[in-house]
Design a protein around this nucleic acid. Structure first.
Lengths: 123, 123
DNA sequence: TCATCATATGAACAGTTATTCATATGTTCA
DNA sequence: TGAACATATGAATAACTGTTCATATGATGA
Protein backbone atom coordinates (compact mmCIF):
# COMPACT_ATOMS: atom_id res chain seq x y z
CA UNK A 1 0.00 0.00 0.00
CA UNK A 2 2.78 2.41 0.81
CA UNK A 3 4.31 1.70 -2.59
CA UNK A 4 1.10 2.39 -4.41
CA UNK A 5 0.73 5.58 -2.40
CA UNK A 6 4.17 6.80 -3.39
CA UNK A 7 3.44 6.06 -7.01
CA UNK A 8 0.23 8.05 -6.82
CA UNK A 9 2.11 10.97 -5.37
CA UNK A 10 4.21 11.02 -8.47
CA UNK A 11 1.76 10.23 -11.24
CA UNK A 12 -0.94 7.68 -11.75
CA UNK A 13 0.80 6.17 -14.74
CA UNK A 14 4.04 6.31 -12.74
CA UNK A 15 6.28 6.81 -15.79
CA UNK A 16 5.19 8.11 -19.14
CA UNK A 17 8.37 7.75 -21.19
CA UNK A 18 10.17 4.90 -19.50
CA UNK A 19 12.86 4.61 -22.17
CA UNK A 20 13.76 8.28 -21.85
CA UNK A 21 13.87 8.11 -18.06
CA UNK A 22 16.13 5.07 -18.09
CA UNK A 23 18.46 6.54 -20.67
CA UNK A 24 18.79 9.81 -18.77
CA UNK A 25 19.31 7.95 -15.52
CA UNK A 26 22.21 6.08 -17.06
CA UNK A 27 23.89 9.29 -18.09
CA UNK A 28 23.42 11.17 -14.83
CA UNK A 29 26.59 11.76 -12.78
CA UNK A 30 26.75 10.16 -9.34
CA UNK A 31 24.54 11.82 -6.73
CA UNK A 32 27.63 12.76 -4.76
CA UNK A 33 29.01 14.92 -7.57
CA UNK A 34 25.73 16.71 -8.04
CA UNK A 35 25.52 17.25 -4.30
CA UNK A 36 29.01 18.77 -4.25
CA UNK A 37 28.11 20.98 -7.16
CA UNK A 38 25.03 22.26 -5.37
CA UNK A 39 27.08 22.87 -2.24
CA UNK A 40 29.53 24.98 -4.22
CA UNK A 41 26.80 27.10 -5.78
CA UNK A 42 25.18 27.46 -2.38
CA UNK A 43 28.33 29.27 -1.29
CA UNK A 44 27.93 31.67 -4.21
CA UNK A 45 24.27 32.13 -3.39
CA UNK A 46 24.67 34.86 -0.81
CA UNK A 47 25.13 38.56 -1.50
CA UNK A 48 27.66 39.07 1.27
CA UNK A 49 29.87 36.23 0.04
CA UNK A 50 29.58 37.39 -3.56
CA UNK A 51 30.69 40.85 -2.49
CA UNK A 52 33.61 39.47 -0.50
CA UNK A 53 34.77 37.35 -3.42
CA UNK A 54 34.39 40.24 -5.83
CA UNK A 55 36.35 42.52 -3.52
CA UNK A 56 39.12 39.95 -3.11
CA UNK A 57 39.28 39.63 -6.87
CA UNK A 58 40.23 43.31 -6.90
CA UNK A 59 42.68 43.22 -4.03
CA UNK A 60 43.83 41.14 -1.09
CA UNK A 61 42.28 42.56 2.05
CA UNK A 62 42.20 42.10 5.81
CA UNK A 63 38.98 41.26 7.64
CA UNK A 64 38.67 44.71 9.07
CA UNK A 65 38.83 46.40 5.69
CA UNK A 66 36.31 44.04 4.15
CA UNK A 67 33.94 44.86 7.00
CA UNK A 68 34.42 48.57 6.41
CA UNK A 69 34.01 48.18 2.66
CA UNK A 70 30.74 46.31 2.98
CA UNK A 71 29.62 48.30 6.01
CA UNK A 72 29.09 45.15 8.04
CA UNK A 73 30.32 43.91 11.40
CA UNK A 74 33.68 42.19 11.70
CA UNK A 75 31.93 39.15 13.11
CA UNK A 76 29.59 38.71 10.18
CA UNK A 77 32.47 38.95 7.73
CA UNK A 78 34.56 36.53 9.73
CA UNK A 79 31.77 33.96 9.75
CA UNK A 80 31.38 34.25 5.99
CA UNK A 81 35.12 34.01 5.42
CA UNK A 82 35.08 30.73 7.27
CA UNK A 83 32.54 29.36 4.82
CA UNK A 84 34.58 30.61 1.86
CA UNK A 85 37.67 29.05 3.41
CA UNK A 86 35.95 25.68 3.83
CA UNK A 87 34.91 25.81 0.18
CA UNK A 88 38.55 26.48 -0.71
CA UNK A 89 37.61 29.69 -2.45
CA UNK A 90 39.81 31.94 -0.33
CA UNK A 91 43.08 31.55 1.53
CA UNK A 92 44.73 33.72 4.16
CA UNK A 93 48.08 34.75 5.55
CA UNK A 94 48.90 36.30 8.88
CA UNK A 95 50.83 39.57 8.99
CA UNK A 96 51.25 40.48 12.62
CA UNK A 97 47.88 41.06 14.21
CA UNK A 98 46.25 41.25 10.83
CA UNK A 99 44.97 38.39 8.67
CA UNK A 100 44.96 39.04 4.97
CA UNK A 101 42.57 37.11 2.76
CA UNK A 102 42.90 36.46 -0.95
CA UNK A 103 41.21 34.44 -3.66
CA UNK A 104 42.25 30.82 -3.87
CA UNK A 105 40.58 29.89 -7.14
CA UNK A 106 41.08 31.05 -10.71
CA UNK A 107 37.62 29.90 -11.77
CA UNK A 108 35.69 32.24 -9.51
CA UNK A 109 35.89 35.11 -11.96
CA UNK A 110 34.91 32.85 -14.86
CA UNK A 111 31.93 31.43 -13.01
CA UNK A 112 30.85 34.94 -12.09
CA UNK A 113 31.13 36.20 -15.64
CA UNK A 114 29.08 33.29 -16.95
CA UNK A 115 26.45 34.15 -14.37
CA UNK A 116 26.48 37.77 -15.45
CA UNK A 117 26.02 36.76 -19.06
CA UNK A 118 22.85 34.94 -18.10
CA UNK A 119 21.58 37.88 -16.08
CA UNK A 120 22.31 40.40 -18.80
CA UNK A 121 20.71 38.30 -21.51
CA UNK A 122 17.49 38.12 -19.54
CA UNK A 123 17.08 41.91 -19.42
CA UNK B 1 27.17 56.73 20.57
CA UNK B 2 25.47 54.46 18.15
CA UNK B 3 28.02 55.43 15.52
CA UNK B 4 30.92 54.75 17.79
CA UNK B 5 29.32 51.43 18.67
CA UNK B 6 29.03 50.42 15.03
CA UNK B 7 32.64 51.32 14.46
CA UNK B 8 33.68 49.17 17.40
CA UNK B 9 31.73 46.26 16.00
CA UNK B 10 33.89 46.48 12.93
CA UNK B 11 37.31 47.32 14.25
CA UNK B 12 38.70 49.81 16.70
CA UNK B 13 40.79 51.50 14.09
CA UNK B 14 37.77 51.39 11.78
CA UNK B 15 39.79 51.11 8.55
CA UNK B 16 43.34 49.92 8.30
CA UNK B 17 44.07 50.48 4.62
CA UNK B 18 41.76 53.31 3.69
CA UNK B 19 43.25 53.81 0.24
CA UNK B 20 42.73 50.15 -0.69
CA UNK B 21 39.16 50.15 0.60
CA UNK B 22 38.27 53.27 -1.36
CA UNK B 23 39.86 52.02 -4.53
CA UNK B 24 38.09 48.65 -4.32
CA UNK B 25 34.82 50.38 -3.53
CA UNK B 26 35.13 52.43 -6.69
CA UNK B 27 35.57 49.31 -8.79
CA UNK B 28 32.76 47.27 -7.24
CA UNK B 29 29.72 46.70 -9.49
CA UNK B 30 26.41 48.16 -8.31
CA UNK B 31 24.84 46.30 -5.40
CA UNK B 32 21.89 45.38 -7.58
CA UNK B 33 24.05 43.40 -10.00
CA UNK B 34 25.76 41.50 -7.20
CA UNK B 35 22.37 40.78 -5.67
CA UNK B 36 21.07 39.39 -8.95
CA UNK B 37 24.18 37.27 -9.29
CA UNK B 38 23.68 35.81 -5.82
CA UNK B 39 20.03 35.13 -6.61
CA UNK B 40 21.04 33.19 -9.71
CA UNK B 41 23.54 31.06 -7.86
CA UNK B 42 20.99 30.49 -5.11
CA UNK B 43 18.89 28.74 -7.72
CA UNK B 44 21.82 26.46 -8.54
CA UNK B 45 22.43 25.85 -4.86
CA UNK B 46 19.96 23.00 -4.38
CA UNK B 47 20.54 19.36 -5.23
CA UNK B 48 17.06 18.81 -6.59
CA UNK B 49 17.29 21.74 -8.96
CA UNK B 50 20.80 20.76 -10.05
CA UNK B 51 19.51 17.29 -10.85
CA UNK B 52 16.56 18.65 -12.78
CA UNK B 53 18.78 20.94 -14.83
CA UNK B 54 21.25 18.17 -15.47
CA UNK B 55 18.47 15.84 -16.57
CA UNK B 56 17.01 18.46 -18.87
CA UNK B 57 20.44 18.97 -20.37
CA UNK B 58 20.24 15.33 -21.43
CA UNK B 59 16.67 15.35 -22.68
CA UNK B 60 13.46 17.33 -22.58
CA UNK B 61 11.13 15.71 -20.09
CA UNK B 62 7.66 15.98 -18.62
CA UNK B 63 7.10 16.65 -14.92
CA UNK B 64 5.99 13.11 -14.28
CA UNK B 65 9.14 11.59 -15.73
CA UNK B 66 11.41 13.94 -13.83
CA UNK B 67 9.64 12.92 -10.62
CA UNK B 68 10.14 9.25 -11.47
CA UNK B 69 13.77 9.81 -12.42
CA UNK B 70 14.60 11.59 -9.16
CA UNK B 71 12.25 9.41 -7.12
CA UNK B 72 10.44 12.44 -5.75
CA UNK B 73 6.81 13.55 -5.64
CA UNK B 74 5.28 15.35 -8.58
CA UNK B 75 4.46 18.26 -6.30
CA UNK B 76 8.03 18.76 -5.15
CA UNK B 77 9.27 18.74 -8.73
CA UNK B 78 6.58 21.13 -9.85
CA UNK B 79 7.50 23.60 -7.11
CA UNK B 80 11.15 23.50 -8.11
CA UNK B 81 10.31 23.86 -11.80
CA UNK B 82 8.48 27.05 -10.96
CA UNK B 83 11.64 28.46 -9.41
CA UNK B 84 13.70 27.42 -12.43
CA UNK B 85 11.09 29.00 -14.68
CA UNK B 86 11.21 32.29 -12.77
CA UNK B 87 14.99 32.30 -13.14
CA UNK B 88 14.51 31.79 -16.88
CA UNK B 89 16.59 28.65 -16.77
CA UNK B 90 13.88 26.36 -18.16
CA UNK B 91 10.95 26.75 -20.51
CA UNK B 92 7.98 24.50 -21.19
CA UNK B 93 5.52 23.51 -23.83
CA UNK B 94 2.17 21.79 -23.47
CA UNK B 95 1.50 18.58 -25.38
CA UNK B 96 -1.99 17.52 -24.52
CA UNK B 97 -2.24 16.73 -20.87
CA UNK B 98 1.50 16.68 -20.55
CA UNK B 99 3.85 19.62 -19.98
CA UNK B 100 7.33 19.16 -21.35
CA UNK B 101 10.19 21.12 -19.83
CA UNK B 102 13.49 21.96 -21.46
CA UNK B 103 16.56 24.07 -20.78
CA UNK B 104 16.25 27.73 -21.66
CA UNK B 105 19.86 28.76 -21.26
CA UNK B 106 23.02 27.79 -23.08
CA UNK B 107 25.24 28.89 -20.21
CA UNK B 108 23.92 26.37 -17.71
CA UNK B 109 26.22 23.65 -18.94
CA UNK B 110 29.19 26.00 -18.98
CA UNK B 111 28.51 27.23 -15.47
CA UNK B 112 28.19 23.64 -14.30
CA UNK B 113 31.43 22.58 -15.92
CA UNK B 114 33.30 25.48 -14.34
CA UNK B 115 31.89 24.42 -11.01
CA UNK B 116 33.01 20.85 -11.60
CA UNK B 117 36.50 22.02 -12.45
CA UNK B 118 36.70 23.69 -9.06
CA UNK B 119 35.40 20.61 -7.27
CA UNK B 120 37.73 18.25 -9.09
CA UNK B 121 40.77 20.41 -8.48
CA UNK B 122 40.10 20.35 -4.77
CA UNK B 123 39.84 16.56 -4.90
C1' DT C 1 53.48 40.70 31.91
C1' DC C 2 49.68 43.58 30.74
C1' DA C 3 46.90 46.46 27.88
C1' DT C 4 45.38 46.84 23.25
C1' DC C 5 43.73 45.38 19.09
C1' DA C 6 42.48 42.14 15.00
C1' DT C 7 40.25 38.08 14.33
C1' DA C 8 37.60 33.77 15.45
C1' DT C 9 33.81 31.41 17.30
C1' DG C 10 29.73 29.53 20.04
C1' DA C 11 24.93 30.36 21.10
C1' DA C 12 20.67 32.45 20.07
C1' DC C 13 17.32 34.40 17.03
C1' DA C 14 14.88 35.70 12.96
C1' DG C 15 14.12 34.94 8.36
C1' DT C 16 14.22 31.76 4.52
C1' DT C 17 13.34 27.47 2.08
C1' DA C 18 12.27 22.55 0.50
C1' DT C 19 8.97 19.22 1.03
C1' DT C 20 4.41 17.42 2.03
C1' DC C 21 -0.54 17.38 1.98
C1' DA C 22 -4.72 18.71 0.14
C1' DT C 23 -6.84 20.61 -3.52
C1' DA C 24 -7.41 23.38 -7.80
C1' DT C 25 -6.71 23.85 -12.82
C1' DG C 26 -6.81 22.33 -17.37
C1' DT C 27 -6.73 18.70 -20.92
C1' DT C 28 -8.38 14.32 -23.08
C1' DC C 29 -11.54 10.95 -24.32
C1' DA C 30 -15.64 8.29 -23.92
C1' DT D 1 -20.78 16.49 -19.96
C1' DG D 2 -18.22 13.80 -16.75
C1' DA D 3 -14.49 10.69 -15.42
C1' DA D 4 -9.55 10.27 -15.51
C1' DC D 5 -5.21 12.13 -15.36
C1' DA D 6 -1.02 15.50 -15.57
C1' DT D 7 0.30 19.51 -13.55
C1' DA D 8 0.07 23.69 -10.47
C1' DT D 9 -0.37 25.85 -6.15
C1' DG D 10 -1.55 27.48 -1.27
C1' DA D 11 -0.75 26.41 3.51
C1' DA D 12 1.83 24.20 7.01
C1' DT D 13 5.98 22.41 8.88
C1' DA D 14 10.69 21.17 9.72
C1' DA D 15 15.26 22.17 8.67
C1' DC D 16 18.63 25.43 7.41
C1' DT D 17 21.13 29.89 7.30
C1' DG D 18 22.93 34.74 8.13
C1' DT D 19 23.55 38.07 11.57
C1' DT D 20 24.22 39.63 16.22
C1' DC D 21 26.02 39.47 20.82
C1' DA D 22 29.28 38.06 23.97
C1' DT D 23 33.48 36.26 24.54
C1' DA D 24 37.74 33.67 23.35
C1' DT D 25 42.19 33.52 20.92
C1' DG D 26 46.40 35.22 19.39
C1' DA D 27 49.70 38.91 18.31
C1' DT D 28 52.02 43.43 19.45
C1' DG D 29 54.49 46.76 22.02
C1' DA D 30 55.24 49.25 26.18
Amino acid sequence: MAERKAALDRCDTIVIHEDVVNSVRDRMPPDENLYDLAELFKVFGDTTRIKILWALAESDMCVCDIAALLNMTQSAISHQLRILKQARLVKYRRVGKIVIYSLDDDHVKQIFSQGLVHINENR
